[in-house]
Structure formats: structure tokens, C-alpha cells
Design a binder for these strands. Structure first.
Lengths: 188, 188
DNA sequence: TTGACAACTTACTAACCAGTAAGTAAAATA
DNA sequence: TATTTTACTTACTGGTTAGTAAGTTGTCAA
């Protein structure tokens, strides 16, 4: 039986990571928010590196669970893309959070190596799913674009990542304008 | 007569900002690298907020100087776009740096308010120039895209920003693939 | 030559950081 | 019932952080 505390720590750490970045939150933040002591966090996650890796690992597991579930798997390519966009729109709606990859990659040069590897795996998995979905849509005659689907996927993923960040400075409309433009580019 | 030190501080602070982020470097880093004492930095920039704002202000001035100079102003839309892409390619080539907007926006919720305002102004200026250039190219029949040029500009800018970050995890090829895809999307 | 000012250094502080060692109370297990 | 294990707390450490106050040195203008 796993504790509530461990999950609460992961939840809060994920939220803080997307809000302030890996170097932007501390064990003290988490502890005071949860009403426990500093050392309680260290009991569940000995180092901050462990905590960071656990957050990304859980996120990766969650994503794989989603895309392998019929609720997503059985959608049309267009619906799949809309579902994917909605993940990012939800992040924006949730206190203006950025995406996990964007947060970690921006601090890439000041995070532990194991966390960098987790980030690389996460990004590859997102990119791979998105490329497959784009390819599936193009073959079905729903999407229209030139070049390799992997490159178009990288373009879209990088843009969603950047758009969540830009929206912090320019507002939510900017993010939605980018998403709308992607749809227009793909569907015309 | 301004000192060498002040400029050296700004140069190093800008480099560190694009490498490790605003929360990822300290006055001690700059001081030891320059062979001066901590307090010397505080003499030129009383607070870290002042230093951050000065870095962005100088970057903004530099960009306006460039785009208003004949060397850029007299280029064709396609050459202007290539010039703009080359700024980001240079950042990638320079130790895998990210762009200034991306660095600051990712840490937006843990930087001083005045630095947020600088970030907003910078992003608006980049976006505005890019939108004009895209519009100019479309009217000249060189670029092809649907929708408002402002939205396409936001898509491209956000993507360049995200691609520099992604390239840290996936490598330089990813960045160049994204740039190539943008060109293909615009020029077909 | 004197005085002012620019460009620092020395020496410090209070706050915060991740991380640890030792102890405790309750629950699960044998 | 006795023992072990889980989930913590208390109390601490050494390192780093931005920031400050007071002193020093060299240059330049009157």
C-alpha cells in the first residue's frame, strides 16, 4: 500500500516543475505546502534528482497508457491531433504552465544527467507518436504537408512547446492562434 | 568612458542566461570568471533584476539596430527570413544556447516583474518584424501561407524557440530539420 | 596640489539550499 | 506477543545565494 504522501509529493513536484522549473522550487516549498517536514520528502525521494526522474517517468508512463488506450487509439487522425493539442491547451489553462519537455530542456545544462536522459526519452516518445499520427492522417487524405512526417512532427511539437512559453508573456490568445494556424496549415 | 568590465559583465550574463537560465547563474559565477569580486558586479548592477533587464534591453536595441540597417532592410523577404533563421542557428552552434525569450519565458513565474515586461517587449518586437517580413514575402508572391501573417509569425517564432530547446535533448539535426520544414511549408 | 569621483576590494550578513543522522510512534508481520 | 518495517520528526550541517557597508586606489578636473 503506497502512501498518499508520496503521490502528493509527485503531484506537487510536477506542478512546481511546470510552473517554476527544476531550479525554481525547493524541498522546503513542497514540505510546507503539504504540511510535512523537509526530511519527509527526502525519505520518499532521497535526492532532488530522484524526485525529478520520478516525475518524468510517471508522465511518460501516463502518456503511453493514454495512447495505447482505445479512447485515443480508435480516434481519427484529426481527433487524435485535437486530443494532443488539448493536452497543451489544458496546461495553458492551468495557471499558465509550460510543458515538461520545455521546462527541462531550457534548464538542460543545469540538471542531473539522469534527468536529461529522462527528458530525451520523453521527447522521443512524444515525437514518435505525433509523427505516426501525422503520417496516418496524410495517408488517409486528411492532412496535407510536404516532407517527412518526423520533421513536421518536430515542427509542431517545438511550436507547441514554444507557444506555451510565449503565452506567458503575450497571453493565452497567442497560444490559441498558433494552434489554429497549425490546423489551417495541415488541413487546407 | 564606459568600462570594459561593465560590458564584460553584460556579455557573460547574457551567455549564462542563454546557457543556464536566470535562476541558474549567480553573481559569484560572473565574478570568478571575470577575475573580479562579487561586489564589483553589484557596483555596476545593484541587483540581479537590474542586470537581467540590462541584458534584455541591450539585446532589444541590437535587434532594432540590425533590422533598421540597410544590410537587413534591403534584403529580399526570403533573405530576411534566412537571416532570421541564422540567428537561431548561431545560438544552437554556440554551445547549444537557447533564445532569450525562451529562457526568460520558461522562468517567467520566478523572475522580477520588470524583467517580465522586458521579455514581453522583446517578444512583441521579434514577432512584429517577422509578421511584416512574412506579409511582404506573401505580397511579393515568394511565400505562401493561409491566415494572418501575425499568426504564422507566432507559429514560426514559437517553433524556433522550442526547437533550440529540443535540440539540447535530441541533437542539432532536429533543429535544422525544423528550419528546413518551415522553408518547405512557406515556399511550396 | 587638492578634491572629487569612478571603479573597485575586503569583510560581512541573513536567508535559503539539498542532504543527513538519529530518534519516534504506529502499523504490519512472524 | 515480540519484532521488524514504514513513515515520518527533530535537529543539524556545509555550501551557496543576493545584497551591503566601509574602506582603498587611481584618474581627472579645478
Amino acid at each position: 500500500m503506497t502512501t498518499n504522501t508520496k503521490r502528493a509529493i509527485l503531484d506537487l513536484a510536477e506542478s512546481l516543475l511546470l510552473d517554476k522549473g527544476f531550479n525554481g522550487f525547493s524541498y522546503a516549498h513542497i514540505a510546507s505546502e503539504l504540511g510535512v517536514k523537509n526530511a519527509a520528502i527526502h525519505y520518499h525521494f532521497p535526492s532532488k534528482e530522484d524526485l525529478g526522474c520520478a516525475v518524468v517517468q510517471r508522465y511518460r508512463d501516463r502518456f503511453q497508457l493514454w495512447v495505447n488506450n482505445a479512447r485515443v487509439k480508435d480516434l481519427s487522425p484529426q481527433e487524435k491531433l485535437d486530443w494532443f493539442f488539448s493536452i497543451y491547451a489544458s496546461l495553458r489553462a492551468d495557471q499558465g504552465k509550460v510543458c515538461l519537455g520545455g521546462s527541462l530542456e531550457t534548464e538542460f545544462n543545469s540538471i542531473p544527467v539522469s534527468l536529461r536522459q529522462q527528458t530525451e526519452s520523453l521527447t522521443n516518445e512524444l515525437l514518435s507518436w505525433l509523427a505516426s499520427t501525422l503520417e496516418e492522417g496524410r495517408e488517409a487524405g486528411i492532412f496535407q504537408f510536404n516532407g517527412e512526417s518526423g520533421n513536421k512532427a518536430a515542427l509542431i511539437l517545438s511550436s507547441l512547446q514554444g507557444a506555451l512559453q510565449m503565452a506567458r508573456a503575450l497571453g493565452t490568445e497567442t497560444f490559441h492562434a498558433v494552434v489554429a494556424q497549425h490546423k489551417q496549415d495541415l488541413l487546407v
